[in-house]
Design a protein around this nucleic acid. Structure first.
Length: 492
RNA sequence: CGGGAAGUGGCGCAGGCCGGUAGCGCAUCUGGUUUGGGACCAGGGGGUCGCAGGUUCGAAUCCUGUCUUCCCGACCA
């Protein structure tokens, strides 16, 4: 077997890069920090997107679309918001090019300067709330439950395929409510939608929690999040849902008259997940031979590989068997492909589909035909089993669930084994450095302590878990009293 | 923006110190033999060596400038 990938042990970051590139998910583009999402990677995103979209609609949301450009003045209307994003905005200053008088191609036409610069959206709260001002007059106009599928740009200093690109695809929900309680309810509801999606479809267990003040979204009152754990022991924020209070309503002067004819500011939420989820998926499940994808979102769920020889009758039998199997599997809604490309040998195909993480492979060999058998192999455990041709379809169908559950349970065990309760500073440091994962420790609740810990260990507070047990304790750094543990980790 | 490294056929690299016909592996094309874990044999095609100057009879190689990318840090979903 060719070691096409750098192994995880040797260099985890390089393994990740190799994997993304060689499995055909994405590649670098001509633009710094921006990637090309290739058909295989986009197929994966489409499956994720479609499922999330269904879940958003089931919870009463509708899709809409707002401009990619935001007038510069909008960004300064909410103070915390501009602080958070100002340093990473792409700015459009001109609207025309012209031929260079010196003959060096084209230049920006200095005559074509925009009156007001336009910001390429890093997130859309401002442009959306500018519209909501016009949409909302009365409590009867509320709630507004809108989602947008879009690209956004954040001019990051350092980028990584899927995990942090300058441009990325995401969805952003922006809702408006008459009451604080309803907005908070919405924030929590969407966090649950995310958690359900990531756990059930991506087979990745998450911890639901609240961010501390310093990790909060710029402009939010509360940021809820789901945190996942990667194989290298680092945490990854997989999705966020923000309770925005009345901050944006006040900034954009969005008021409504309630039943008693009083003018009130609107309550807001926003929530989003991005193509970063693909990065999470890769790092959570894959191995040194390639991707391992959960069946529910794999672009291709089953591949059938024929092994021919010179016997034409056997070839014929393989082809008709494959055709029947495809028909049967497709009837059950399974995404299946028959790879009968004679330019590639079986061994090459085995390695290729393993690299691409196809959950199940069915091998139909000339030799098997005589015995009425097929070999069924699952990607996650590498187990192979000979199966009577009559049972193959049923076997494949049941494997879809078995692989999905197997991946989730494996990730769950790993995650649970990597939540370590710690009560002393020495232990805190050694667990972070030697074991990795989440460290559950007491914290005195101050941003100063949080900063100091980050500076000393590079670990941040990932979240305060929602279902947190209340218990008396002492801050792991300062020894000051604390009433609950929080989760620390090094993070992506 | 600070610190490293690198730009040579599609991809990965060698050559550079010591200037003299651009080379290797993979991929690709043609023909054939093969097919149970990344096949083999034979033949072929493809590169103004990142860009711009300079030195020289002659530059991938030496000099100057410049651009870009990747990795490590501060920032971030």
């Amino acid at each position: 077997m060719g070691n096409i990938l750098t192994s995880r042990k040797q260099d985890y970051a390089q393994w990740y890069n190799d994997l993304v590139l060689k499995s055909g998910l994405a590649e670098y583009s001509a633009v710094r920090g921006c990637m090309v999402i290739k058909p295989y990677g986009f197929g994966l995103w489409e499956n994720m997107r479609d499922q999330l979209d269904r879940m958003f609609k089931e919870t009463g949301h509708q899709n809409a679309y707002f401009p990619i450009f935001i007038p510069k003045s909008f960004l300064s209307k909410e103070a915390a918001h501009v602080d958070g994003f100002a340093k990473e905005c792409a700015v459009v200053t001109h609207y025309r090019l012209k031929n260079d008088p010196d003959g060096n191609g084209v230049i920006v036409d200095p005559e074509a300067k925009l009156e007001e610069e336009l910001i390429v959206r890093p997130t859309s709260e401002t442009i959306i709330w500018n519209s909501y001002k016009n949409w909302i007059q009365s409590y009867r106009d509320l709630p507004i439950l809108v989602n947008q599928w879009a690209n956004v740009v954040r001019w990051e200093m350092r980028t990584r395929l899927f995990l942090r690109t300058a441009e990325f695809l995401w969805q952003e929900g922006h809702t408006a409510h008459a009451t604080k309680e309803e907005a908070i309810q919405e924030t929590k509801q969407m966090l649950n939608v995310y958690a359900t999606f990531v756990e059930e479809y991506m087979a990745l267990p998450v911890i639901k929690g609240v961010k501390t003040e310093s990790e909060r979204f710029a402009g939010a009152e509360d940021t809820y999040c789901i945190e996942a754990l990667m194989q290298d022991g680092k945490a990854l924020q997989a999705g966020t849902s923000h309770f925005l209070g009345q901050n944006f309503a006040k900034a954009f002067d969005v008021k409504f008259s309630d039943k008693d004819n009083n003018m009130e500011y609107v309550w807001a939420t926003s929530w989003g997940v991005s193509t970063r989820l693909i990065g999470a998926l890769i790092m959570a499940h894959s191995d040194d031979d390639g991707l391992v994808l959960p069946p529910k979102i794999a672009p291709l769920q089953v591949v059938i590989v024929p092994i021919y020889n010179k016997d034409e009758a056997a070839t014929e039998k393989i082809n008709t068997t494959a055709d029947e199997l495809i028909k049967e599997l497709r009837a059950k809604g399974i995404r299946v492909k028959f790879d009968n490309d004679e330019g590639r040998r079986p061994g090459w195909k085995f390695a290729q589909y393993e690299l691409q993480g196809v959950p199940v492979r069915v091998t139909l060999g000339a030799r098997d035909m005589e015995n009425g058998l097929a070999e069924v192999a699952r990607r996650d455990t590498k187990e192979k089993e000979n199966c009577s041709l009559d049972d193959v379809a049923g076997k494949v169908v049941s494997l879809m669930d078995e692989v999905q559950d197997g991946l989730y349970n494996k990730a769950l065990n790993f995650r649970n084994e990597h939540i370590t309760k710690v009560d002393s500073w020495d232990e805190f440091v050694s667990v972070l450095n030697d074991k990795g994962g989440f460290v559950s420790a007491h914290w005195d609740g101050t941003a100063e302590t949080e900063d100091k810990i980050k500076e000393m260990t590079k670990a941040t507070i990932r979240c305060i878990p929602l279902d947190n047990v209340q218990e008396e304790g002492k801050c792991v750094l300062t020894g000051k009293p604390s009433k609950e543990r929080v989760l620390f980790a090094k993070a992506y």
